[in-house]
Amino acid sequence: MSILPPSQKIWWKEPIHGIEITWIIIALIWCLVLFAWMPYWHIYGKQNLSNESYKTPPEVFEAKANAMAKAHTVRTEPKSNIPVVKPPAGSDVYMLGRLWQWWPILELEKNKTYRLHLSSLDWQHGFSLQPTNINLQILPGYETVVTITPDQSGEFAIVCNEYCGVGHHTMLGKIFVK
């Protein structure tokens, strides 16, 4: 009875059921597979989170995003008045989150690689790129750098999936891949 003291004073030496020990071995093997999968994917997988990040004051990040936008804006999205920026392939690309928009809109080339820098100017936000479904936590004061290679063309949305106040559900961004 599990609600009574063990029937033997020395229970450590009780024999173990055969199926119990078999199950423990099987389960342990599976646990080790699960564990090994993560380093394996770091080496052979193509989708990893980078370990590159910096402590970046919001105003510094904003200045960099502005500079990039100034240099490479190709047009302005009419309804929201957000610039659409087309940075050169391989370059450093900045996108900032703030209440309640992702700024600027990006236009990228398919199968080209970019260094995407992400940060927030105010509260925490969630970078959720849809419909490909990549989800990252974005914090104020920290800059994440991910190297991405869009391999599908089309129009992608960035939904904010970290609660950031009453306008949270209006916070959308765009990436066009041509």
């Binding site: 929201s80 849809q130 999936n161």
Partner: peptide
């Protein structure tokens, strides 16, 4: 699995400046 966010009032984004449609 289809990307719908948690803690989100409106996944139809009806009063957002930009638009997106979930599946």
């Amino acid at each position: 699995t289809l990307g719908v966010p948690r803690r989100h009032w409106d996944i139809n984004f009806s009063d957002a400046a930009l638009q997106f449609q979930y599946a």
